[in-house]
Design a protein around this nucleic acid. Structure first.
Length: 491
RNA sequence: GGCCCCUUCGUCUAAUCGGUUAGGACACCAGCCUUUCAAGCUGGCAGCAGGGGUUCGAAUCCCCUAGGGGUCACCA
């Protein structure tokens, strides 16, 4: 049992929380909960241009919706406040001053043009693009002269020209990098804000983060961060780089692959437990052939040792399947509560109905959820329970209404249903069986015609419970309407 | 292009120190159930990237090749 595990997820509020981010957050969260440690949310808002308060709020909403709680961070505070990098500038400044004073960092006045020229030169020579180190040797007099002239400058950390840096990764083992491939990284931008590589190193140390669990795209940046940490005199945390999530075409997941943000999945009627369960399975396996797991089971079973190394391709179908499972097995009241916004949004029920017909809505949802996979589909499939103006399936109309005897059959169904009392599943069933025997027409002819007249569709929940729930009056009314609409002339 | 990572069914993965008819799940296909069905049940199809080694024995260890991904920003 390790003690004092502290992990963090550090989203940048420059967009919605996306699938890859959630998976990383989830692994961090599971690891923390499994170890009895702390999960910290830190806001990486050092990109002044792109960060926004709206995105931050949206990300926080996503976490709340997913029910992933954080022990320290926005809205919660903690012993290592503040948790927004924009509010920690004095800390970075202090550290930079120290590096500058110790000669471990220097100010650099190179312009974008000069840097481009350097890079071009490197490319021509077949060398990796690398900063020349031109400003390393500036004297203090030169530096203050340039500053006085009002020249823009950044601060770079000095990287050793030789030797190697080894990243000891919990998932990948020891990964060795030659120091000569790195140039001196910028740690403070010309706007005075720290770069990611610097701020996150400082924060991880100051916040006493023990394990940095993040996506593999950061692996190549890790040696730079270790170099910066070394200059600062920090010990490095343990690293664990989890495999990336790729789109079905093996490219990086992006907007053109469809929904990528948590909010979009939420709007499509995906349940948080399904999303979490699915994401947990992407790059991690509990063994024992387990697939369906509650969040608590995941916490109990999680370990970094069982995280795989290879990238995973995102498969919507499995998510959908899991969602169907959770949709069907979830507590009825909860599923109903989650469906109501979809019913309202689709104009299927009114605010008033949502408030006063909760019990009936619940019954509809329970019936309808059996054969669909998302909350959005529940709403669509619920429509004819609440609205009379549905469309009729054209194929069904051709098959069941536009044929000889259709009018008579509808009439007979109507007559027999008229007499059913009470309008219960059992009584309806009895009546249908009786009718079938009497007129010598099999139920597989009678039932589809009935369903089509009542719902406009050929598919749906079991017919007799459906009729019972809809109620006698509605059923009779709709059969009459179907007759009027489709049966012309002789019966 | 340099550097780094990765490679088991179409997809997610199991097989943790070499010995299995290479297991499970999604998808797909078939059958069953049923008034229908997108649900459920049963069954089926399908994989160790290729080539060399090491070994009595390799999916598992080593090397090479190929392929995929990441990274080389005053973005995180």
């Amino acid at each position: 049992m390790q003690q004092g595990v502290r992990v963090r997820f550090a989203p940048s509020p420059t967009g919605e929380l996306h699938i890859g981010g959630v998976r990383t957050a989830l692994f961090n969260w599971l690891f923390a909960r499994n170890k009895g440690g702390s999960f910290i949310l830190r806001v990486d808002d050092t990109d002044r241009q792109r960060s926004s308060e709206e995105y931050l709020q949206s990300i926080l909403d996503s976490f709340q919706w997913l029910n992933l709680d954080w022990d320290e961070g926005p809205g919660r505070g903690g012993a290592y406040s503040p948790y927004r990098q924009a509010e920690r500038l004095n800390i970075y400044r202090e550290e930079v001053e120290r590096l500058l004073a110790q000669g471990k960092a220097y100010t650099c006045f190179c312009t974008a043009e000069e840097l481009d020229a350097d890079r071009d030169k490197c490319r021509r020579l077949g060398q990796p693009p690398r900063y020349s180190g031109r400003c390393r040797s500036l004297t203090t007099a030169e530096v203050s002269a340039k500053k006085e002239k009002g020249l823009n400058y950044v601060v770079r950390a000095i990287t050793p020209d030789e030797g190697e840096t080894i990243v000891d990764d919990l998932i990948r083992g020891k990964v060795t990098f030659e120091n000569k491939v790195f140039d001196d990284p910028i740690i403070i931008k010309s706007d005075g804000l720290p770069t990611y590589n610097f701020a996150s190193v400082v924060d991880d140390s100051k916040m006493e983060i023990t394990h940095v669990i993040r996506a593999e795209e950061h692996l190549s940046n890790t040696p730079r961060q270790q170099i910066i940490a070394a200059q600062l005199g920090y010990a490095v945390p343990r690293y664990a780089h989890v495999p990336m999530i790729l789109a079905p075409d093996h490219s990086k997941l992006s907007k053109r692959h469809g929904a990528t943000s948590v909010q979009e999945y939420r709007e499509q009627g995906i349940l948080p437990e399904a999303l979490l369960n699915y994401l947990a399975l992407l790059g991690w396996s509990p063994g024992e052939d387990r697939e369906i797991m509650s969040i608590n089971e995941m916490v109990a079973l999680f370990s970094l040792e069982r995280v795989s190394k290879n990238p995973a391709i995102y498969d919507l179908q499995k998510l959908t399947w899991l969602n169907g499972h959770y949709l069907r097995t979830g507590k009825p009241e909860r599923i109903t509560a989650m469906t109501i916004p979809f019913l309202l949004k689709g104009g299927i029920i009114s605010e008033n109905q949502a408030l006063h017909e909760r019990e009936r809505i619940g019954k509809v949802v329970e019936m309808v959820r059996e054969k669909v996979k998302t909350l959005a589909e529940v709403a669509v499939a619920s429509r004819y329970f609440f609205m009379d103006d549905f469309e009729y399936d054209q194929k069904g109309v051709d098959k069941h209404f536009h044929r000889d005897g259709a009018g008579l059959l509808l009439q007979q169904i109507e007559d027999v249903l008229e007499k059913v009392n009470p309008f219960s599943v059992e009584e309806i069933e009895k009546a249908f069986i009786g009718l079938s025997e009497e007129i010598e027409v099999p139920l597989n002819k009678i039932n589809p015609a009935t369903r089509l007249a009542i719902t406009g569709r050929l598919m749906g929940p079991e017919l007799f419970p459906l009729l019972s729930l809809l109620g006698k009056d509605k059923v009779i009314e709709r059969i009459k309407k179907a007759r009027k609409l489709f049966i012309t002339g002789n019966i």
